[in-house]
Amino acid sequence: MILVTGATSNVGREVVGQLAAAGREVRAFTRDPDRVADIGPSVKTVTGDLAQPETLRAALAGVERVFALSGGGPEQPLHDANLAQAAAEAGVRHVVKMSVIGAEYGFGDLMSTWHLAGERAIRQVGLPWTFLRPGEFMSNARLWAATVKSQGVVYWPHGHVKVAVIDPRDIAALAVAALTSPGHEGKAYRISGPEALTVGERVGTLGAALGRALRHVEIPVSAARDAAARAGRQPLVVETALTNMGSDDYRVPYAQVLPVSRDVLGREPRTFAEWAADHIGLFR
Results as ranks from 00 to 15, higher is better:
residue 16 V to P: 02
residue 79 H to E: 11
residue 274 E to Y: 08
residue 97 K to L: 13
residue 251 R to S: 03
residue 199 V to C: 13
residue 40 G to Q: 03
residue 15 V to K: 06
residue 278 D to L: 09
residue 140 N to G: 14
residue 109 D to K: 01
residue 33 P to W: 02
residue 241 A to Q: 12
residue 87 A to H: 01
residue 218 E to K: 02
residue 182 P to E: 04
residue 185 E to F: 05
residue 159 G to K: 04
residue 128 P to F: 09
residue 58 A to E: 15
residue 239 E to K: 13
residue 36 V to C: 00
residue 56 L to C: 03
residue 4 V to F: 04
residue 140 N to C: 11
residue 143 L to Y: 15
residue 111 M to V: 15
residue 63 V to D: 00
residue 278 D to I: 03
residue 177 A to N: 01
residue 61 A to F: 07
residue 232 G to T: 03
residue 141 A to G: 10
residue 67 F to M: 05
residue 127 L to S: 06
residue 195 E to L: 11
residue 59 A to E: 05
residue 171 I to D: 03
residue 162 K to Y: 10
residue 154 V to N: 11
residue 221 V to E: 03
residue 236 L to M: 13
residue 258 L to T: 01
residue 19 L to G: 00
residue 14 E to G: 07
residue 248 D to R: 14
residue 36 V to H: 01
residue 135 G to Q: 07
residue 14 E to V: 03
residue 122 I to G: 08
residue 113 T to P: 00
residue 83 L to N: 08
residue 3 L to M: 05
residue 280 I to G: 07
residue 80 D to V: 07
residue 9 S to V: 04
residue 128 P to M: 08
residue 8 T to K: 02
residue 88 A to P: 02
residue 2 I to E: 01
residue 41 P to F: 10
residue 96 V to F: 01
residue 168 P to I: 01
residue 159 G to F: 06
residue 166 I to G: 09
residue 110 L to T: 10
residue 88 A to T: 05
residue 82 N to F: 05
residue 62 G to C: 01
residue 40 G to A: 02
residue 220 P to E: 02
residue 82 N to W: 02
residue 240 T to D: 15
residue 211 G to Q: 13
residue 123 R to Q: 10
residue 125 V to P: 00
residue 17 G to Y: 09
residue 273 A to N: 07
residue 28 A to L: 07
residue 175 A to E: 05
residue 146 A to V: 05
residue 143 L to G: 15
residue 240 T to Y: 15
residue 252 V to M: 12
residue 106 G to H: 04
residue 68 A to C: 12
residue 257 V to E: 02
residue 57 R to Q: 12
residue 173 A to G: 02
residue 228 A to F: 11
residue 207 G to A: 14
residue 126 G to K: 08
residue 174 L to R: 12
residue 248 D to M: 14
residue 161 V to L: 13
residue 209 A to Y: 11
residue 276 A to P: 09
residue 174 L to K: 10
residue 21 A to I: 04
residue 7 A to G: 02
residue 68 A to M: 06
residue 159 G to M: 07
residue 228 A to W: 06
residue 259 P to G: 04
residue 259 P to S: 05
residue 38 D to I: 03
residue 78 L to G: 06
residue 122 I to A: 06
residue 31 R to S: 15
residue 89 E to P: 00
residue 95 V to F: 01
residue 98 M to Y: 15
residue 267 R to D: 11
residue 273 A to S: 14
residue 3 L to H: 05
residue 184 H to M: 13
residue 78 L to Q: 15
residue 115 H to V: 10
residue 115 H to Y: 08
residue 85 Q to A: 14
residue 258 L to W: 08
residue 220 P to W: 02
residue 231 A to N: 07
residue 106 G to C: 09
residue 115 H to W: 10
residue 2 I to P: 00
residue 22 A to K: 13
residue 40 G to V: 04
residue 93 R to S: 06
residue 280 I to H: 12
residue 40 G to K: 01
residue 126 G to L: 10
residue 25 E to N: 09
residue 156 W to T: 14
residue 2 I to W: 00
residue 220 P to C: 01
residue 117 A to N: 11
residue 220 P to M: 02
residue 172 A to N: 06
residue 283 F to Y: 15
residue 37 A to V: 07
residue 174 L to P: 11
residue 125 V to S: 03
residue 70 S to R: 01
residue 22 A to Q: 14
residue 241 A to N: 10
residue 24 R to W: 12
residue 239 E to C: 05
residue 190 R to V: 03
residue 45 T to V: 12
